[in-house]
Design a protein around this nucleic acid. Structure first.
Lengths: 192, 192
DNA sequence: CTCGATTGTCTAGCAATGCTAGGATCTCCT
DNA sequence: AGGAGATCCTAGCATTGCTAGACAATCGAG
């Protein structure tokens, strides 16, 4: 069945190409510019090909979200493992989170802002999403404080980061004081 | 000039009708359902009339945002003024904010999530937006703590609330623990 | 090697979207 | 009463996500 295998590989390869191209286009010109036509043109296929891989634009966003989520988890773990002591770890975590959002706005949108048809906070939540939350939990669990459920604390801390990330990106918060806000957030929320 | 005045009044009245209808439609079926055609049909005019009042859909969203922002400010002040003591006030503020977001999801989106073409955190920021922030500041300024800039503290607190509001609404956070998260937020962030 | 069937792809098209041009109608002042 | 000017609507454009149906390439059986 070598032929079938090759076909499957090529198909999988094309699917990755679609996702990568969608992501690239979104980062370059925003998600509004990611139309099925443009996307199809960039991968040198016609539109209907997209629909043989994904149900629709939604699922493409979802695929980008999953890919990005995995990267976010990696970035968070890399940042925390490079820091010494609880406070430095949490600060590094927050910084890495915000930097990820800043450097990959379209991907961040795909994960947290747009509708990618993904389930959150349920059993059928995709693994990468759970894992990104797990990465947060690993670091934040140890600074939740006495009698505070680690997951609940993580949710709150995450919400604060999410708020900072989105409001900053849309110019709703002046960007220049980001550092101070993070310091304040860490200093107040975390029990060190 | 009674005739001219009447015309102007009618025109202003129609503008309010447009905004109110857009808001209603958005709350009922989401902003995606607010198309210029549907909106025009509901107010018994043709599409181009909308464009004699607003530059485009964007500005209509912006108008809803301004209206909603004013209401938010009122709601926040009502909640804080009814509470005794710093802790109760801040808790009431947070509760009122989240309740507003929960009960007026479309309006909340118009203000904070969608692009209504409004300027934020600048001199030319519209008054209602500044005032909503001022309402937050009035309450949160007194619990910022020593040596912490009240505005910076307010921004952080607001970001946390915004994160909780949006993530909860999109089912990204389980709704049942909202109360605990708010308690934790207030207890940790505010200096009482 | 040939020929039908299956798989894959593309062309063409649909309905819906935001927005606009141009003409029709209606109102008001002289 | 008539013309100027404001007001509004019909009709249309380009773009969107998505799909049907035709066409071609490939594969397996004889």
């Amino acid at each position: 069945m070598s032929v079938q295998e090759r076909k499957q590989r090529e198909r999988a390869e094309r699917e990755r190409l679609i996702v990568a191209t969608a992501r690239e286009l979104a980062e370059q010109q925003g998600w509004d510019a990611v139309t099925t036509r443009r996307l199809a043109e960039r991968i040198d296929y016609s539109q209907p090909v997209l629909y043989s891989h994904f149900r629709g634009k939604r699922e493409i966003i979802g695929a980008v979200a999953l890919e990005g989520s995995a990267e976010l988890a990696v970035a968070l773990r890399a940042a925390t493992s490079a820091a010494e002591g609880p406070r430095a770890r949490v600060t590094a975590l927050a910084g890495a989170y915000l930097e990820f959002a800043e450097r990959n706005p379209a991907v961040y949108d795909a994960i947290f802002q747009l509708d990618g048809g993904l389930a959150f906070a349920q059993e059928d939540t995709p693994e990468p999403l759970k894992d990104a939350f797990a990465a947060l939990l690993e670091c934040l669990g140890e600074v939740a404080g006495e009698g505070v459920h680690p997951a609940l604390f993580t949710e709150l801390f995450w919400a604060a980061l999410h708020g900072l990330a989105t409001l900053t990106r849309e110019q709703r918060l002046p960007r220049e004081f980001t550092r101070q806000r993070v310091e304040l957030l860490v200093g107040r929320l975390a029990v060190l």
